[in-house]
Amino acid sequence: MNQAIFTRLAETGRPRIAFTLDSRPVEALAGDTLLTAILTQAASVRESEFGDGPRAGLCLMGACQECWVMLDGHGPVRACTTPLEAGMAVRLRRRHAD
């Protein structure tokens, strides 16, 4: 089942880029932000630290701080303002209680 939130409407001829999502090899397109790369194939980017469910960003302009993901070697980054690069290892944050 396709879990994606985002739907591509155009610009789909860009080169494909490989990265990993929670260690799973996946692909997205050159020029994608991390948020686009994730939400075109996943249903969220993180879990709320307070146990109230998944989150997938909100403002896309670096203001709301809702779309933090863990990037191996970098720590937490805002997915909406971070360009996707080949080989990135992205971890969608899980509840601390898990």
């Binding site: 985002f6 739907t7 591509r8 409407l9 155009a10 610009e11 789909t12 020029g31 994608d32 932000t33 686009t36 939400l39 075109t40 960003g57 909100l58 403002c59 896309l60 302009m61 709301c64 909406c80």
Partner: peptide, 16 residues
């Protein structure tokens, strides 16, 4: 998403 966020998605990422 916010209206502005939905617009950024379309304009700069070509996604809905």
């Amino acid at each position: 998403f916010s209206l502005g966020g939905a617009q950024i998605a379309l304009k700069t990422q070509a996604v809905a």
